[in-house]
């Protein structure tokens, strides 16, 4: 049977010929096929859904994309609460649109994951049962309007640092999805920055609200990319599912955003935070990794409430899904 990808007019000819070489190895022994796969991926090649891939790779991509999708879906909840309270028409439109984007990202990512063999409903089941995870930052409460600015600016900025590196992921559908997601996230950052700058230039109450939100979010932000890890032992890096280590991402985030935060006259709640010119990297107080572990295992301040909210809501809308999946009947 002809692989439909070989006929795909969208792929450049060189990539098409590479696809042929690796998809058509079906008669080779496993180890040899594995070697071809390794060489292809390590050499910068892309894997497409119909290509042969080792189960470990499929599982690793699925795990990675599923957690990303879960995070987009759960990330909707903290901000969604403020759509109703947005203080101007423009802010309400922007926030609704931003949250809508996150839902759209969840949809795109769940589709990528579905093609790897796990049905969407099974992913929702696992998320609600606590078998799969979502990002630490979405386990925290949003207390004031300033949180909306800080999340859209800095949480999204920390995310985009990681996501930009994923545009070159070895898994083709994920890499392409990230192109769109990154573009939209960069608009979110502009929206967030605008909210933050407005508050920073506002009344004393607004400035205090902003500083308080930043103080509260800084810990989770520093934990967000995870503890330092050994590059050589990270299989996601080896297979180029992702491109950078946690520490590389954190350093990148600090380099871009610390000056921008300070420029607004805000302070950061870490007295050790400073750029070490000799070492060429940021020094900072060790983030609270216990807090991170506690939070991502669904013991964060809002973990239970948000999962329960999703569960109740899923239950309350089950009849709609049943109705639209059913065969239409003739009118009564």
């Amino acid at each position: 049977m002809t692989d439909p990808l070989a006929l795909d007019p969208v792929l450049p000819p060189r990539e098409r010929s590479e696809l042929r070489a690796r998809a058509w190895n079906e008669d080779l022994p496993h180890d040899e096929r594995y070697e071809h796969f390794e060489a292809h991926v390590r050499g910068g090649g892309k894997i497409e859904p119909h290509d042969w891939m080792p189960d470990e790779y499929r599982t690793a991509v699925l795990r990675f994309v599923e957690m990303h999708a879960n995070s987009e879906l759960m990330g909707v909840l903290p901000e969604r609460e403020w759509i109703m309270r947005a203080p101007t028409l423009r802010r309400k439109l922007a926030l609704t649109s931003k949250v809508q984007d996150e839902v759209g990202h969840a949809q795109l990512l769940y589709r990528v994951a579905e093609d790897l063999g796990k049905p969407r409903e099974a992913m929702f089941d696992d998320l609600l049962a606590g078998k799969t995870k979502f990002h630490n930052v979405f386990h925290y409460p949003t207390r004031t309007w300033a949180d909306i600015g800080v999340i859209a600016w800095l949480v999204d900025a920390a995310a985009i640092v990681a996501q930009q590196a994923l545009r070159d992921s070895s898994y083709g559908p994920y890499a392409r999805t990230m192109q769109k997601i990154c573009w939209e996230e960069s608009v979110h950052i502009m929206h967030g920055r605008d909210v933050v700058v407005t508050l920073a230039n506002g009344t004393t109450t607004q400035r205090e609200m902003l500083q308080e939100a930043l103080d509260r979010w800084w810990g989770p932000l520093m934990q967000m990319h995870g503890p330092r890890s050994d590059r050589s032992k990270d299989r996601d890096l080896h297979w180029r599912i992702k491109a950078k280590t946690s520490e590389e991402l954190r350093q990148e985030f600090l380099t871009i955003y610390v000056p921008r935060i300070l420029e607004l006259g805000l302070t950061l709640p870490d007295p050790e935070l400073a750029f070490d010119k000799e070492a060429g990297e940021w020094r900072y107080a060790d983030p609270d990794w216990n807090e991170l572990r506690t939070v991502v295992t669904n013991h964060g301040p809002k973990s239970h409430e948000r999962l329960e909210f999703r569960r109740l809501n899923r239950e309350a809308t089950a009849w709609v899904r049943a109705a639209i999946l059913a065969e239409p009947r003739a009118a009564a």
């Binding site: 649109s97 809508q100 969840a106 769940y110 899904r321």
Partner: peptide
């Protein structure tokens, strides 16, 4: 309608309802 953003019965509908909410707010504005 914007209250459905993030919690509509299916993700595809979530995006649709949210677009409608934004249209209505744009008209209101």
């Amino acid at each position: 309608d914007s209250e459905w953003t993030g919690i509509a019965p299916i993700l595809e509908e979530d995006v649709a309802m949210s677009s409608i909410a934004q249209d209505e707010l744009g008209h209101a504005k």
